[in-house]
Design a protein around this nucleic acid. Structure first.
Lengths: 246, 246
DNA sequence: CAGTGGTCTAGACCACCGG
DNA sequence: CGGTGGTCTAGACCACTGT
């Protein structure tokens, strides 16, 4: 565990400092609602400028580990607030964070003609006739959790094989390595709906059971749409978490 | 509309600059994916240091108006990404953002003995026997939208009257002015459920209709729980929006 | 190479809080 | 009042991009 800052380290100093402080907080070295050393003291301790100290603290505040009070000090947030933020995660990552083993059964994979709705979500240009679709049954600890349909805009000749998809645990990992696409932002909507007979049989529930429908448009590092994903979650097995700020 | 920075203004300079740039972007002065002036140029234009420039830009990036590319420049995000972030809003604010006129019908208001579940969400100490509860039917454009139950921890003697609640449009406004409590962070969960006969009759839907259940714990500026709110939204009238980042 | 954003410093002054 | 965080400056060097 790192205790001092390496001025020539691989990570910038404010990042190193944030890591050091985060470990000390998570390790219980600081109590909830107790003040951490003042910014001038931290300057002395770690031999970096106050600007760098403040940047590290800013990071930890956005991550929910600390909070500031003007004129009083910087304090440790109670454990409750140290969990996850609204994070853009794949189904697999989401499951792992919940301590559930993710799984999948690929139902269909290949090019299709997109519906008008999918076209608009992908902001597809007129001349683009085909999009790549993946339909999967998603499992949590081996039990059906949701039905996922993903759409991608691939260039001429690009494709994704069933084997590749099964090999990479995460599709985001694959998209990054094969096509240099990194998801950086997404707009998501959630609503309720009822299972059709087909959906019900795949999810092993009764037709008409309530489902949570998530629709997400994901943007790449270039701020262009890179995927549109629709997931139908079993209402009895899935709960959505969000962290809001003002 | 502000065009220059007042060094002695009420708002800090980076904030003024962010406002100026935001207006220029929203006003269509800058095209999507076009670069804004470089940081050194902005230094000249607005006569503030680069640090201040960067702070303003950081703000606008977090608000979804701009994005940076190392070595290339700072660019305007397309309109699509300029909408709302995961924001902590009250029911009324949420409705107004959607262009719907919020309304309410207060069903019950007063002190009650909290259930175990409510106790734990409020992180209520043993000795605290009573919490303040408000039950309201929430309307959108006059039509039932959801059923909201809110719980608050008030000090001895503090109370909220039906008249006060009706007078203030927003309960957050009221809590701030009366008790100096400012909501700053919240954890929310969403899941699906089916309407009981009672809920159905209040919401004017059939029993067994699907509902979106939101449960939210809100934290004050002191990082203490200040409210717990449960809202049952009509599945046919409400959709949840979230913006995710990585 | 010149121009961009990314990191960092040392120092200054202000506003707020508590004793 | 002294100590805290909040804002700001002028300047430096680095890493990355495009030509």
């Amino acid at each position: 565990m790192q205790k001092t800052i390496d001025p020539n380290g691989f990570l910038p100093r404010y990042h190193q400092l944030a890591n050091i402080l985060r470990e000390r907080i998570a390790g219980g070295k600081f109590e909830a609602h107790q003040p951490i050393p003042s910014e001038r003291q931290l300057e002395e301790i770690y031999s970096v400028s106050r600007t760098t100290i403040r940047r590290a603290i800013d990071l930890l505040i956005r991550q929910g580990f600390l909070y500031r009070e003007h004129g009083r000090g910087t304090f440790v947030s109670p454990q409750k607030l140290q969990k996850r933020i609204s994070e853009l995660t794949s189904f697999s990552e989401d499951m792992k964070q919940r301590g559930i083993i993710p799984g999948q059964k690929i139902l269909e994979i290949g090019y299709v003609q997109p519906s008008t709705k999918v076209r608009s979500h992908l902001e597809l240009p007129e001349e683009c006739k085909q999009v790549f679709r993946i339909e999967r049954l998603r499992l949590g600890d081996g039990i059906p959790m949701g039905l996922q349909t993903s759409y991608y805009i691939l260039s001429e000749g690009q494709t994704i094989s069933r084997e590749e998809l099964e090999e990479y645990g995460s599709i985001y990992q694959m998209l990054q390595e094969k096509f240099h696409l990194i998801p950086t932002e997404a707009d998501e909507t959630l609503e309720v709906t009822l299972a059709t007979p087909l959906e019900a049989s795949l999810l092993q529930i009764k037709p008409g059971s309530p489902l949570l429908l998530s629709e997400r448009t994901t943007y790449s590092q270039y701020r262009r749409v890179m995927e549109f994903v629709k997931i139908l979650y079993r209402g009895d097995r899935y709960r959505y978490f969000a962290k809001l700020t003002r």
